[in-house]
Amino acid sequence: MSVLVLLEQRGELKPCALEAASAARDIAAAAGMPLNAVYIGQSLEGQEGKLAGYGIAKVYAYEHASLSHYSNDAYVPIVRDVARELDAKVIIGSATALGKELCASVAARLGVELAQDAIGAAWAGGLVAKKPLYAGKVLADVTIQSVPAMVSLRPNSVQAAPQDGPAPEIEKRAMPEVSLRSVLKETAEATAGKVELTEAKIVVSGGRGVGGPENWHIIENLAEAMGAAVGASRAVVDAGWVHHALQVGQTGKVVSPDIYVACGISGAIQHQAGMRTSKIIVAINKDPNANIFKLCDYGIVGDLFEVCPALAEEVRKVRA
């Protein structure tokens, strides 16, 4: 009997691996089961210390240069076999792009259910995962009856909170023989710098209130500080200050980032249509009656020429 956590790596252990370990520790404690981990990657060497304080008894480390990148063919059988070997009752992974694929595949191989992309999981006589449904409009508790109960946790949804405790024992395992059907031909890093508007987690948009193209750097500066993509209202695009590709709205792009910052945008419905599904909307506008304040979560009534640089500075400060 064991709780098993899947430690995701990209060269180094990813922060979400520790978040998963943190959640797994609490579940193992509540269930009264030991916690073990699987690591698959090039090498765990030098990173064992990071795994201290999560109550992991043993890490089954499958280390090989050919395992540095994810592969269904290689990873899935390993996890399946370790889970069977340990008689795992709970398996916790990360809901990253690759983690979800791994979890789904392992769940199929084990013939069990999986709560994918959960934002929390707890033990209450069985595993209960909390996960968003309908594009986050509903939060559901999913009680998993099949064993092992599987869950993948959305990154950043639980905090990695190590406690005092020793680093786990590392058991190095030989890579099993597998025939790789799919071949990784190439890896590419996303081009640094500009974030694609529709995929950005944060979007900073400017409207007519920016006054003119000569002031647009204020929007870009704030976006850079927040690691955000830059957007614009139709008025700004129409006026030719920025390219149409940046337009958010009915006739532009539809975005739904975690944070949408609207600067000097009145909030006409044509704009609303492009950003209303954002999780949090922050509005900066000098007109307290502007429509945007009816649409926003947090609003600052003020001159964007003051507020935006101050906000950028504050974000840089807390991020530093």
């Binding site: 009915q250 006739t251 249509a273 209303r276």
Partner: peptide, 19 residues
């Protein structure tokens, strides 16, 4: 394409903004 989006919205939620 923008008109296509609008008509899809109208088909879906029966208004042009997909509200």
């Amino acid at each position: 394409e923008e008109a296509q989006n609008t008509l899809r919205n109208v088909e879906g939620q029966s208004n042009p903004w997909n509200l």
